[in-house]
Design a protein around this nucleic acid. Structure first.
Length: 545
RNA sequence: GGCCCGUUGGUCAAGUGGCCUAAGACUCCGGCCUCUCACGCCGGCAACACGAGUUCGAAUCUCGUACGGGUCACCA
């Protein structure tokens, strides 16, 4: 077979040579050791939490002086959704991840190694596919879907490994005349790799996360270019990551089984393969077993879920970091206010087995994150969230910002701040009793207090209450009504002789708390009463009676 | 089924042959602090999948078994 003739038949009028592209996309001029990573999603419009996880790793690995870029893998039209790229960009941006090259919001691109959408790179793929044909490493295959299906069926019946390879590869040895004839007749074809792999030989790859990976060479004549001339993932991966000078391919470990294909492709194309780091996917408990977080079954698989719930992006980032590198928590404790860029992230510290996504842990991290925010910031964040997800809260907050901030400031700027709020979605409930429209009087009392005693407490308290009391005076007033009503003003004293009293000062304030807020548990009552003000407080106490 | 990967408490995990009568965090349960709650502090429950082997000695190395996961497309 004259491969040059085949090349002319298959790829007439190829514009550029491989050398042209090698020169156009030269090795990047970066400091020694700088890493080039990429996030390469399909534009499906769905941002999976695993996508964020993945790109966050890319971002951290490239960070100090390398490059992290975005490439859109749009080689499958079926997966494409309108606005998909914008969704990806905004998903990344919502967690402060900004690729330094790639498609931009305005529809354009930045970076010298583009186009960054694979559909725009067809000329490039054709050029390198042609090179393979010229060397006899690739050939056209005219088999139809039905033929391929029948082949598979037979192979399965005979207990053979299914696929297009070796003696099963019907079009592999087709002569030139037959090919020419088929093409003249307009028969659709794909371009296949003429695999030189030997199943008895092994490839060895040192994965940066999983360590040494050893597997049989690829023997399949895999598809390089589909009927429509668009490359498959495998071929595009080799061409793009070489030409875009990616140094580290970081991806989910569902790709490790295709490693033999990729290694072979790089070799046959004459490219140096990148380093691979293949992490385990985020898992979820399903009954008694683990499985991948599924975009169809699990709402928490979508990044949007966390923002709807009102988790601050910082919480998500901190959580993701704790499952990426388990020493992150210790580092964070030692470096409370350090920016995450300073964290010495290490690929090799990533777990080789899959981590379960744990909402309880996220919640714990999130309430710490929020507890450390100043009141103004909490207000602003909750307001932004409410604007989109809770009209009522938004109205309340924007009507009187100072009041809202004062509420949120209770017990905040102190050494041990309260940790009541995990996400903005909980804010309204947390402070509902500060607003008349949300206030729900409640008749629940501490179990050991009768309504008659409660009424007595409130009546007595209304007589001694003075808005101008300081915190100490305020508490002394409460203590002062304890004795006459049969309660102990001192908790320790009560615990020594519980049978001598109806209760203690804590019970008395609980009654006042219940009357004033409708709840048994709240932050500091003194602060709350100050914010409520005399009129509203007295009105609530009277209503209680 | 073939090929590959994994397996330390309910969860995330430290651990790379003796420092392991196995760290830390989350959850849960006690207690302390305290006007309630939250926080904080102290304490508790709870694990090296199983079986052989190598070794003076194994969570750590080897082999096998079991279980879990991934993948076998003109999808990525």
């Amino acid at each position: 077979m004259d491969f040059l003739k085949l090349s002319n038949l298959l790829f007439p009028g190829i514009k550029e040579s491989p050398e042209y592209y090698e020169e156009k996309y030269p090795p990047r001029n970066l400091p020694e050791g700088a890493k080039v990573t990429r996030f390469a999603p399909s534009p499906t419009g769905f941002m999976h939490i695993g996508n964020i996880y993945s790109s966050f790793v890319d971002f951290l690995v490239a960070k100090p002086e390398g490059v992290f870029y975005l490439r859109i893998e749009d080689t499958d039209q079926k997966r494409e959704v309108e606005g998909g790229i914008e969704k990806i960009l905004s998903g990344l941006a919502s967690l402060d991840i900004f690729p330094s090259e790639g498609p931009a919001f305005d529809g354009g691109e930045t970076g010298a190694y583009g186009p960054y959408k694979q559909r725009g790179r067809c000329e490039i793929y054709r050029c390198f596919a042609n090179e393979l044909v010229k060397k006899g490493f690739a050939y056209p295959c005219f088999c139809t879907e039905e033929e391929l299906g029948a082949l598979r069926e037979n192979q399965e019946k005979d207990g053979e490994n299914p696929g297009y390879y070796g003696k099963w590869a019907n079009c592999r040895e087709m002569n030139f005349a037959a090919i020419e004839n088929n093409i003249k007749n307009g028969r659709p074809y794909v371009l296949r790799l003429r695999s030189d792999g030997d199943e008895n030989k092994k490839i060895v790859v040192e994965d940066l996360i999983k360590g040494k990976l050893e597997m049989p060479e690829n023997t399949q004549d895999i598809v390089l270019l589909k009927t429509d001339g668009i490359p498959t993932y495998h071929f595009a991966h080799a061409v793009d990551d070489h030409l875009m000078r990616t140094t580290h391919v970081i991806r989910g470990d569902d790709w490790v089984s295709s490693l033999p294909i990729h290694i072979q492709l790089f070799r046959m194309l004459g490219f140096k393969p990148p380093k691979y780091a293949q992490y385990s996917n985020l898992m979820k408990m399903d009954g008694a077993s683990k499985r991948k977080l599924s975009k169809r079954k699990d709402p928490e698989a979508a990044v949007s879920f966390y923002f709807e719930q009102g988790y601050p992006k910082e919480s998500l980032i901190e959580y993701l970091l704790t499952i990426m590198n388990s020493n992150f928590e210790d580092w964070r404790r030692a470096n409370r206010n350090e920016i995450i860029d300073r964290f010495p992230f290490a690929l090799k510290k990533m777990s080789p087995s899959g981590a379960l996504f744990d909402l309880a842990k996220l919640n714990d991290i999130s309430k710490t994150v929020i507890s450390l925010m100043p009141a103004d910031e909490v207000y602003q964040n909750a307001l932004n969230w409410a604007k989109e997800y809770d009209e009522e809260l938004f109205a309340l907050f924007s009507n009187d910002p100072d009041y809202a901030k004062a509420i949120l400031a209770i017990d905040r700027d102190v050494p041990k701040p309260r940790k009541d709020i995990e996400r903005w979605g909980q804010v309204k409930d947390y402070l509902s009793y500060f607003y008349e429209s949300l206030f729900a009087p409640c008749r629940d009392l501490p179990e050991n207090i009768s309504k008659a005693d409660a009424d007595a407490i409130i009546k007595n308290y209304m007589e001694v209450y003075d808005e101008s009391d300081g915190k100490e005076g305020w508490f002394n007033k409460i203590k002062s009504i304890c004795g006459p009503l049969g309660f102990s003003p001192d908790v320790k004293e009560y615990k020594k002789n519980p049978e001598s009293y109806k209760g203690h000062v804590g019970d008395v304030s609980s009654v006042i708390r219940a009357a004033a807020t409708g709840r048994l548990n709240t932050p500091d009552l003194y602060e709350i009463m100050k914010l409520l003000g005399k009129d509203r407080l007295l009105k609530r106490l009277e209503t209680f009676l």
